[in-house]
Simulated scan of single mutants.
Amino acid sequence: MRCKSIRAGLTVLLLACFPTAYGASPDGRWQTIDDETGQPKSIITLTQASDGSLSGRVTEILQSDKGPNPRCEKCEGERHNQPIVGMTVLWDLRPEGDNAWNAGTILDPSKGKTYRAKAKLAEDGQTLEVSGCIVFICRSQTWLREP
């Protein structure tokens, strides 16, 4: 009986010290992979608010045909001609089940278009599947966690 309680206590302690990736936070830096070219495109820093919602802003441009400091030329409103680095491009993603978020918005600065967004963190905690849709036309990307 005593061995079982010691074993149970050790299991709880190990789980507390080494949390599984599933249930991991999406907070941090993510490398976006262009869904059209398959090449790394930018680094997005994701932040999870206390209510579980996600937002993301561009912190680095890795590849652009507009140079190292591109502007959002095709964006409308307050984002028009603003630098893409520092721009919030993902917002209001709401938690939906385990490691999934939905009903947010994502901006593609190169096209100046916004899409309804959803995201799902893989069990390994190292990849994030992000998709955006306009009506029935959807685009998906796999983002890789930065070390």
Rank of each mutant, 00 (worst) to 15 (best):
V130K: 01
T127N: 08
C138I: 05
D124I: 01
N99V: 05
T105H: 04
C138G: 03
G97C: 05
V130E: 07
G104A: 07
A117V: 04
I137P: 02
Q126L: 02
E123P: 02
T127E: 04
K111R: 12
N102C: 11
V130D: 04
K111E: 08
K113P: 00
T114P: 01
I106A: 08
T105V: 14
C133H: 07
A117N: 09
K113H: 12
I137F: 15
E123V: 10
S110K: 15
R116G: 05
I106Q: 05
I134H: 05
I137R: 14
L121N: 10
A117K: 02
S110T: 15
T127H: 15
I134W: 08
G104M: 13
N99F: 06
L107C: 03
I134S: 05
Q126R: 14
D98H: 14
F136Y: 12
A100M: 09
D108E: 13
D108V: 13
G132Q: 08
L128R: 05
A103K: 05
A100R: 13
L107Q: 02
I106H: 09
A103H: 11
L128F: 11
T127L: 00
Y115P: 01
A119G: 11
N99I: 04
K111N: 08
R116L: 12
A100D: 02
V130F: 15
F136E: 02
Y115L: 01
V130C: 05
Q126G: 03
C138N: 10
N99H: 12
Q126T: 07
T114F: 03
R116Y: 06
N102Y: 13
D124M: 00
L128V: 10
T114W: 07
L128I: 13
G97I: 12
T114V: 06
L121P: 07
T114Q: 13
G104D: 09
A119N: 12
G104Y: 14
L121D: 04
E129Y: 07
G125W: 03
R116T: 15
W101T: 11
G97S: 11
T105M: 10
C133A: 09
D98S: 10
K113S: 06
T105Y: 02
L128A: 03
G97N: 06
D124F: 11
I134Y: 04
I134C: 00
C133I: 10
K118P: 01
I106G: 00
V130I: 15
D108Q: 10
D98P: 07
C138R: 11
D124L: 00
Q126Y: 04
A100P: 01
N102I: 14
Q126I: 00
K120P: 02
G112V: 13
G112P: 02
K118W: 12
N102D: 15
A117Q: 04
N102P: 05
A119S: 11
A119I: 13
Q126H: 09
Y115S: 06
A122H: 03
P109A: 04
F136L: 15
A100F: 11
T114C: 04
A117W: 04
I137G: 09
R116N: 09
T105C: 00
K111F: 11
